[in-house]
């Protein structure tokens, strides 16, 4: 099978959907003439022209709202935020309008829109550029939240997101755009709301999503050498969450570690913890452990940043804790 980069998978997904559906357009800062701040829309201006691949000024509130308005009137916009940190100045349009229009209008209007861009940290970018808001968006009824971890999932899920009649938050990572992975020729979709077991195992379940899942893979390799078998579940979609896949795995391994790049207070891992204790309490042989970033804004200094961000050693420690080793 051919191998392509994450950014190419994103570009293919958008381009394929735009070829099929003239209501779809791409809008954002630097998406057209610059080919995307991270080159995820490379060549799209040439193919689709400036009416459908639209550069904006630095005006997230304005263009997010215009996109939502156009979605109420027949378009299926893809809105690129250079990062989701910058979406904060436009978040009113996502939470109060995109997520609510359908409900407030008693189902008269829907809002088929995708907001996409990188989430979480990307090296030493410090406090304002290293934030993960998956749990914020996932807390909001009306939205769906997708966080893929490889090119294959990114393409299939982004196509589903663009086709979806409801608003979708699609979160990528600056540090994944260059990742290569196998992606078949031709079209395919991956259903929203379905997790995937990325590595089968029997001793412990590790749930993660997005780029940080790589730390779980690295930990599992190390632990295998010590005879510990890890099952790794990639959520892929955070809302709606595939609780069945998690519960089934926990009922098999009886131990759960959750790895999430986000602040520890009230996050995705917290939600999983609640669900598992309420539905599989008797299956648990150890308290659930969740691994998150430090409970502080991201620091800049390399020493501090390394300490702040979870890594595979943290996963190894957590796995050993739930195994009482």
């Amino acid at each position: 099978m051919r191998t392509i980069q994450f950014r190419e998978a994103v570009c293919e997904a958008m381009s394929e959907e735009m070829r099929k559906d003239e209501t779809v357009y791409l809008m954002g800062e630097e998406v057209a003439e610059y080919n995307g701040a991270y080159k995820a829309s490379k060549g799209m201006l040439d193919e689709f022209g400036p009416d459908r691949v639209i550069d904006t000024p630095i005006s997230e509130l304005g263009f997010a709202g215009i996109a939502v308005g156009s979605a109420m009137n027949g378009n299926k916009p893809i809105v690129e935020f250079m990062t989701f940190n910058f979406a904060l100045v436009g978040i009113d349009q996502i939470i109060n309008n995109a997520a609510k229009i359908r409900q407030m209008s008693g189902g008269q209007f829907n809002c088929p829109i995708v907001f996409r861009g990188p989430t979480a940290s990307a090296g030493q970018l410090a406090a304002t550029h290293s934030q993960a808001f998956e749990s914020w968006y996932a807390n909001t009824p009306g939205l769906k939240v997708i966080v893929p971890s490889n090119p294959y999932d990114a393409k299939g899920l982004l196509k589903s997101a663009i086709q979806d009649p409801d608003p979708v938050i699609f979160m990528e990572s600056e540090q994944m755009y260059g990742d290569k992975g196998e992606v078949p020729e031709g079209e395919y979709t991956i259903p929203i709301g379905v997790a995937e077991i990325k590595r089968e195992g029997k001793d412990v379940t590790i749930v993660s999503f997005g780029k940080i899942i790589k730390e779980a893979y690295a930990a599992a390799e190390e632990l295998e050498k010590e005879g510990i078998s890890c099952e790794i579940i990639d959520l892929r979609t955070v809302r709606p969450m595939d609780h069945d896949t998690i519960l089934k795995s926990v009922k098999k391994t009886n131990r759960l570690v959750i790895l999430e790049e986000a602040w520890p207070f009230g996050n995705v891992a917290t939600e999983i913890t609640y669900q598992v204790q309420s539905q599989a309490f008797d299956y648990l042989d150890a308290p659930i452990v969740k691994i998150n970033t430090a409970d502080t804004p991201a620091p800049y200094s390399p020493v501090l940043f390394k300490e702040w961000l979870p890594n595979h050693n943290d996963v190894i420690k957590a796995v050993k804790k739930v195994l009482y080793k």
């Binding site: 709202g65 215009i66 156009s70 979605a71 109420m72």
Partner: peptide, 12 residues
Amino acid sequence: GQIPLGAGLAFA
């Protein structure tokens, strides 16, 4: 909040 929405209706 409705001001960009109005422009978005016109955009479509």
